[in-house]
Design a protein around this nucleic acid. Structure first.
Length: 431
RNA sequence: GGAGGGGUGGCAGAGCGGACGAAUGCGACGGUCUUGAAAACCGUUGAGGGGCAACUCUCCGGGGGUUCGAAUCCCCCCCCCUCCGCCA
């Protein structure tokens, strides 16, 4: 949520910032109008409440002194005020609810540093490591799509996954499952120097989904257990961000860094028919997420650190990648600035988004009511939240298998993963 | 799932219709004392909204109700504890 007070006091700046990402100007204007009404109503309501409170005190005194007739008269007076108060309160509640609902639908303001642009084509590539998608850089044996490699080596069983769960569900087998697990473990081990490992619930309440900005706007993208009013998380960002919900953190504990490996569930409602083959787009996948709560002046450095950490994993796996600075038009709803990491998968000849490293400023914190206090100082402020995928399994799995495929059809296991492979150094067909 | 007990400030814990934003204790902070510290003593100490301010409103798990007035009474829900049942 953006701050209503900013809408009140700095409307033009807010409007211009929002305009840069092409969003919700109508809602913004409505919020401004409703907020003005709301303040009038609550001021009047509070005035009446104040009178009622004063009268009630008098009634108490009069009754104690046995002057019940005078008390009676005061009660009648107060009763009349009470009716007016109720009208005002109802009106205020109604407008307050509408304001909040609008506010929940307004995206975050982009950072001044985020490049302008309308869609993905306008994202700015700021870095490229490895040969990229130069055709000459890749050998023939690396030009095999991962689903074929998976079948050849018996490490990917999509057919049976579909039998169990339907299209866009996956199953790794044998060394393929080991690879999946090894990737997660590598990511966790790699960040254990600074991040607390968490194993959160993967099914959460509606309120938890609202905090991160995944509801109410994007309900169609998530799986819902209607009978129990629970949602399957699309990313560990959801529970990890709610971990501190409604809490006031001590500045000494900031930045607070958390990481978690979880399954992630996505309905991919808008993308039927796209990337249907293989592991490029699936309904359930494992991911290691890294996340931080910070004070505003710590945020920039943390954002850079999260990106560095995500990059170094990709580098360690020997993959080619590029980093994009997302333009205002392509920014996620809650984000102020996002860097995407895309790895190049030679077998399918595609750049695959494997990590989004985002800074949410205080947008999520305001939704989730997460504040901090500086010891000895008065008052509290909203924290900033940041997060990124350290490693998302299926796409990285695909890129690893395609990149490291050998001329004889086997897949060489990257050195950093060897500790997790029980002595094996390559993946070969078992029969 | 069944029966009973409970949810109050950073923590512990009183209050069960008016003087309660809430006793008391602990903790924390400031001061006195001390070479320094401890102890003792004195004082301060929740969050949020509106208002230039004076000031005012809201919050005692959540929501609704009764009342001139609710932490206190009534209804619904949630959570925690104990016992029983079931169970990876």
């Amino acid at each position: 949520m953006i701050d209503v007070r900013r809408i009140r006091t700095d409307y033009d700046t807010v409007r211009d910032a929002l305009a840069r990402r092409g969003g919700a100007l109508k809602e913004l204007e409505q919020v401004r109008e409703l907020d003005a009404q709301l303040r009038e109503l609550t001021a009047e309501r509070d005035q009446i409440r104040s009178e009622v409170n004063a009268i009630s005190k008098e009634v108490g005194t009069l009754r104690r002194d046995g002057r019940s007739e005078e008390a009676e008269a005061k009660q009648v007076e107060s009763r009349a005020l009470g009716e007016r108060e109720k009208q005002l309160a109802d009106a205020a509640d109604e407008i307050g609810a509408r304001t909040r609902d609008l506010l929940l639908h307004i995206p975050n303001l982009p950072s001044v540093d985020a490049p302008d642009g309308a869609h993905a084509d306008d994202n700015v590539e700021i870095k490229r490591v490895g040969p990229g998608d130069e055709p000459a850089a890749w050998a023939e044996h690396q030009r095999v799509p991962h689903w074929d490699i998976g079948t050849e080596l018996g490490i990917l069983d999509l057919e049976r996954a579909v039998k169990m769960s339907g299209a866009m569900f996956t199953m790794f087998r044998g060394a393929g499952a080991t690879l999946s697990r090894a990737l997660c473990q590598l990511a966790l081990d790699h960040n254990s120097d600074a991040f607390e490992e968490v194993r959160p619930p993967t099914v959460v309440l509606t309120e938890t989904m609202i905090s991160t900005g995944h509801l109410p706007k994007f309900a169609d993208d998530a799986y819902c257990f209607e009978r129990d009013n629970l949602w399957a998380i699309p990313t560990a960002e959801v529970p990890l961000t709610s971990l501190a919900r409604d809490e006031i953190l001590d500045s000494a504990d900031l930045p607070m860094r958390l990481m978690a490996q979880t399954a992630c569930f996505r309905r991919e409602a808008g993308s039927a028919g796209r990337d249907t083959r293989g592991l490029l787009r699936v309904h359930e996948f494992d991911k290691v997420e890294i996340l931080a709560y910070a004070m505003p002046d710590q945020a920039a450095e943390l954002h850079a650190d999260l990106l560095r950490r995500a990059e170094s994993l990709i580098t360690a796996l020997g993959l080619t990648y590029r980093v994009l600075d997302l333009c205002t038009g392509d920014l996620g709803n809650s984000s102020a600035r996002t860097f995407d990491i895309e790895v190049y998968a030679p077998g399918v000849d595609q750049w695959l988004e494997v990590s989004s490293v985002s800074w949410f400023s205080d947008y999520q914190a305001r939704r989730a009511n997460i504040r901090y206090r500086v010891a000895g100082e008065k008052g509290t402020d909203m924290v900033h939240t940041l997060n990124g995928s350290a490693l998302a399994v299926p796409r990285v799995w695909a890129a690893v298998v395609e990149t490291h495929r050998q001329p004889d059809g086997s897949v060489k296991i990257p050195e950093v993963l060897l500790p997790y492979f029980r002595g094996a150094t390559e993946i070969r067909a078992t029969k």
